[in-house]
Simulated assay, not measured.
Amino acid sequence: MPEHEMRVVVIGESLVEIISDPRQPEEIQVHPGGSPLNVAVGAARLGLHTSLVTHFADDRHGLLLGEHLRSNFVHVINGGTAPTSTARATLGPDGAADYTFAITWEINGAALPALAAVEGSAHVHTGSIATVLPPGDQATLALVQAAREHATVSYDPNCRPGISPDAAVARHQAELFVAASDVVKASDEDLCWLYPDRTPDETLEAWLALGPAVVAVTRGAAGPVIQSRDGRVELVAEPSAVADTVGAGDSFMAALLSGLSQLGALGTTGRRTRMESLTREELHALAAYANRAAAITCSRQGANPPRKDELGPLP
């Protein structure tokens, strides 16, 4: 399936990020955000035909989100009625963000169109708050499980202890989604919080044993690791003048999906087998491609993933 025809459905939260930087206290930035929304926008900018199953209201913040998604050619399936969620991010000296949330996650208002979108998709992605926060977490899992029969699946836990502070509960939820996925991406911070008694490499091996074909771990300035059952690649982070790290992991995820699509490893019949047979050279190309997407995002403020003409094709 040509990349521009690849139908990807992302399931998860949309919110407005209100960002303050102690280095510039007079400036308050307001950006569309939420990890799944960022992945949907990133995937659409890289040429994938993308829909987002999400929730936001017809309020001031919701109008901002709707316009952002429309302008990036993301089709929206909106399933909620509660006020639009917000995240207040305070940047540290290194540009990393610390979040506090006011968030609701429920998509019951779009159960039928969401299922129809998933059934018509070649790939489904989910993660973050949508996979742990009731009542919508169970609907998210049901949609992912429905997708498994005909589509490839990806997952990024993107843990938010401020939303789901019980690590044992979050760990249980994460393992349900890992087992239902073909591609999993997490940060080393996610893995250390979920599994404080083992190393990220040990968790990577344990997650591969649950069923995914590919697991990637981002490690900030140390760079990413990407591993399959037959190979492992480590790269250092690309040099970049860091404005902030908001959305960098989501850009990595979106580029990983685009790269897998370019390799013919996303989608229906036979694609799962193709993903399971990726060579070490292909894993290296995927890691480099996603690594560069994250570096571009870090070089500018907010979650602003690269477009196809900026990132170019998979090396």
Rank of each mutant, 00 (worst) to 15 (best):
V214Y: 09
Q24I: 02
E106Q: 00
A167W: 12
T86N: 01
L204F: 08
S121N: 04
P135Q: 02
E202L: 05
V215Y: 03
I129T: 12
A43R: 05
M253W: 10
V144G: 02
H68G: 01
D201W: 11
D94E: 12
A102M: 02
F56D: 00
I296Y: 15
V236Y: 03
E189G: 11
R88N: 11
S261V: 05
L143G: 06
R271P: 00
A294G: 13
S128F: 10
L210Q: 15
G223V: 06
A168Q: 15
L194Q: 04
A206V: 00
A265F: 10
N291R: 10
V233F: 04
C159A: 06
L141K: 04
E205H: 14
A209R: 14
G302C: 08
F73N: 14
S228H: 08
P25Q: 13
P315V: 01
V225I: 15
G162S: 10
H150S: 03
D156R: 09
H123L: 08
M1A: 13
S258C: 14
V118N: 06
Y195G: 01
N158M: 08
H172F: 11
A180C: 05
A243V: 14
A122D: 14
A96G: 01
P157D: 04
A248R: 05
E13C: 06
I163A: 10
Q301N: 12
A102T: 14
D190N: 05
R307F: 12
R45D: 05
I296K: 08
P196A: 05
P25I: 15
A287E: 01
A40I: 12
L314T: 02
G211A: 05
V169E: 07
R148S: 12
L210W: 09
V233A: 01
G211E: 03
S258Y: 04
V124H: 09
D98C: 02
E13N: 06
E281G: 03
A82N: 00
P165A: 03
L48N: 03
L194R: 09
E310G: 05
R45P: 01
E106A: 00
A130E: 10
W193D: 03
Q301M: 11
E3K: 15
H172E: 15
F101Q: 07
S187D: 02
S164G: 04
G136S: 08
D244F: 12
R271M: 12
S299L: 09
G92C: 03
H172P: 00
G312E: 10
I107L: 08
I103D: 00
R160A: 09
I28W: 05
A40M: 07
G34Q: 06
H31A: 10
V53Y: 08
W193M: 07
V41Q: 04
T245M: 06
N72F: 09
T131V: 13
P196L: 06
E17F: 05
A114H: 07
P25K: 14
A186W: 10
L65Q: 08
A221C: 00
S85G: 13
L235N: 02
A295P: 03
